[in-house]
Amino acid sequence: MSSNRRLTYLPDGLPIPVAEPDGLSAPYWAGLRRNRLMVQRCGHCTTWQFGPEWICHRCYAFDPEWTEIDPQGRIFSWERVWHPSHPVLKQHGPYLAVLVEIPHAGSVRMVGNLLGDPMQNISIGAQVEGVFEHHLSSDPPYSLLHWRLSSAL
């Protein structure tokens, strides 16, 4: 637990993501556990879709297929959070959340944390690479997808 705390961007104790009771997003969360980013792509009309839904919003084919994509994108927007909205963040200090757009997957967007100095300057449009973060000692275990600037690699 304690080693995990040092290795994760935010402290343990935040809400743990799980799939809905109907299993809609289960392939996404299972993918992150295996270092794979899975997004829906309709097998009928090839439309990308994220977050997942039971139907393709374009052609109404049910159960859109899950496709692995490269976790690369660009910053669409960002925020630096100062106010701790959860007890475990009370002594933590500021942190960065980014909204990342993935051009090679229909420009779907996903939220994650931007690794590195929380006070760094951020440019909208900057290229970022995904970083998988595993919370194996959590109950239940889960994985997240963070981002870091491609220029920082």
Partner: peptide, 15 residues
């Protein structure tokens, strides 16, 4: 535990 929209946000401190 959390699912649905919040699952994509809250673990990242977007609470």
């Amino acid at each position: 535990t959390i699912s649905g929209e919040k699952a994509y946000l809250m673990p990242y401190g977007v609470l």
